[in-house]
Design a protein around this nucleic acid. Structure first.
Lengths: 209, 209
DNA sequence: GGATGTGAACTATTTCACAGCC
DNA sequence: GGCTGTGAAATAGTTCACATCC
């Protein structure tokens, strides 16, 4: 079990590594990964160490080995099956973003309560009605739910995902969702983030460090 | 200067407080805020203490005083002016979400490079061309930039925002952006978050704690 | 000389636990 | 009895610093 922050950064290192690999770069130093990921060289070395990735002082880390090892740590053997619930603007943004991007992370189903959206193919993904959520997610073996519905529907959607056996939820609704022990929830609160940026934008370097 | 995490949670407590206030609730206990925000009672008390919010053992915290004090800590006197750059699906989602929601947090301008979008009013906000970014943001006194453009445009947009005097950026592009000392950047990396949820969804309670 | 790998130190954040109050 | 306010302890996360290697 690797630490939360390290897992997020490994995903970033892999993206950078994949980009470099596509350009034919074979090796990378920790300070290069740090510069491209917004981290520090010491942090990168620590993260790679925790993931069991090893390099050499002469050439740094082998890009292909880095990618392979992050794959082994992060990826599910059969790929990560993701369901999207709520095909509003935010949901469509994620559909467009993940569509055909990466073989190991697939949005395999999209759901919406709006009858006008159900049945239509949006960003290449057919929009299904809410009552199909439990059977469809169960039969597709969905691991993660992306919740992009309004706040008042978040708990109902969560309960359905739980019933379908989903054990991880990324929640963009501005509402707390209740889940049983053992289910992992990540909550992205846009308002809180904007207000945080506003707060620290005003105060950077204005007070004693 | 209050800690990062505390600032985010204060925003959440205020949203909950505002909701309760609207329903006529006068007082709230730390364990109630904890249950509604996904935190713990001790964490809530610590956060409120750090913000200078004080309650009584008998009645808990006065909701109106909590809101007023969070306002004083988080808000800019003239309101937080936010610019949105990139009116794709993600940008439209934020426009729709923030439109008329809260007097103290306004998206005051939206920009896009696509000539087909420029000039149109999208979600109640007129879309302006990129070359207007610097003068418009400067004259409106924009504090925070919401970057929702593709990765390859993120740095150019950032540089323009910096030139316009913006000191805080919320970046949704999957790319690291360089800013000078004193500018606050929050990077939301959707891919990393989905992969993190996938990782911990599979591993919750499967390994020794 | 400049890199990795990593124990140790440091900083940030959360939780415990309890005195004091109603 | 249950709650607030808060030192103190515990935990999580980051950075330092240096032995070691190429």
């Amino acid at each position: 079990m690797v630490a939360h922050r390290t897992i997020e950064r490994l995903s970033v290192y892999r993206r950078i590594g994949t980009l470099m690999h596509g350009k034919g770069t074979m090796h990378v130093f920790s300070h290069e990964l740090a510069a491209r990921s917004g981290s520090t060289a010491a942090q990168v070395r620590r993260d790679l160490m925790l993931a069991g990735i090893t390099g050499s002082p002469a050439k740094g880390y082998l890009v292909s080995a880095l990618i392979a090892r992050v794959n082994a740590v992060l990826d599910h053997p059969e790929g990560l099956q993701v369901a999207l619930i709520g095909v509003g603007n935010l949901g469509r943004a994620f559909l467009a973003y993940f569509l055909g991007r990466k073989a190991n992370l697939n949005i395999v189903a999209a759901f919406d309560a709006d009858p006008a959206k159900v049945g239509r193919v949006i960003q290449g993904c057919r929009c299904l009605p809410m009552q199909d959520l439990v059977p469809t997610c169960r039969s597709l073996g969905v691991h993660v739910g992306l919740v992009t519905v309004p706040a008042d529907q978040a708990q109902a959607v969560t309960d359905a995902l739980l019933e379908a056996g989903v054990r991880g939820i990324l929640n963009f609704a501005p509402a707390k969702i209740r889940v049983p022990e053992g289910v992992f929830v990540e909550h992205v609160d846009i308002t809180a983030l904007v207000e945080k940026v506003g707060y620290f934008a005003a105060r950077q370097n204005k007070e004693t460090p």
